[in-house]
Amino acid sequence: MILVLVEVSLTGEAVENSLEAITFARDLAAAGGGIPIDAVVVGVPGDDVVKALAEHGVRRVHALTGPAYDAYSGAAWAAGLMAVREKTGSVVVMASGTPRGMEVLAHVGARTALPMAANVVSFSSLSPFTVTRQVVGGQAREEMQLSQRPALFTIAGHAVQAAPADAPGTGELVEETPDVADADLVARVVSSEEPEPDLSGSLKSARVVVGAGRGAGSADGFGEILELADLLDASVGVSRVVTSLGWRPHHEQVGQTGSRISPDLYIPCGISGAIQHWAGCSSAKNILAINTDPDAPMVTKATHAVIGDLHEVLPAINEEIRRRRG
């Protein structure tokens, strides 16, 4: 049995990264001769989630319930995941490479004293079980052997594309109320602020996306970027560092832990093109990179490029658009 931790968004949907992890699990299950795939979710999922998981090939959906799951605690989630793993005898326990997926699997690794492989992109052999994962910021890959059971790993965001299964699973819902020790509830979220609304829908479906990275310079450095987006009726997409630094909201993030976009034209400005970002934008049909560094990965992978500072290049482009429109 393969056990996959599935995250559900605040709006009540299975997150895309989790569906990608299940899609990856299906390849593994097939290679192993048809191993069943079960999912673990925290809280009782809505019918839509159960249906989506079944469509992706999940046999049983184990829902962790009880007061221990009222607020997030990585240790409590790990305790629940391990309780289901013991009950089902799973040989693989996996999650998506989201912050929570990483955290919970690391807890499982520490509790079982087993290795945990982060950001896996593929597997090459079942015996011994060998995975390839991203290291050095995606610049290199590591082949790692997970010879003990259960094998623990997370799937790098957008390493595979989520797709429904040819043979759907039954998606039987099973409620689980595992015992959770008090010690696992010490480090627990005590309050959370109203999250920003998820407005990523328009970004994912946008025909044109204007992107910005560290090269924007500061939260105040987005004037020309927003102006170009406005002129082209485009969405704005940013790299992770931009949201980490609080310059722009998270729903604009493109990449492994953000949205995957596939516009006709993507215009990354001041984005170096680390693999984490590339994972989210590689499906763009045309890429016009604007960057000071002609050797930046985003420039070499683009279809078109302008070498220069975005703060000098964009005003000229915006002006040229206005001039031609008269």
């Binding site: 010490v186 480090a187 979220v189 999250p195």
Partner: peptide, 11 residues
């Protein structure tokens, strides 16, 4: 920043 918005822990 957490999955459910800005989250605070106290322990």
């Amino acid at each position: 920043a957490g999955a459910d918005g800005h989250e605070t822990y106290r322990l």
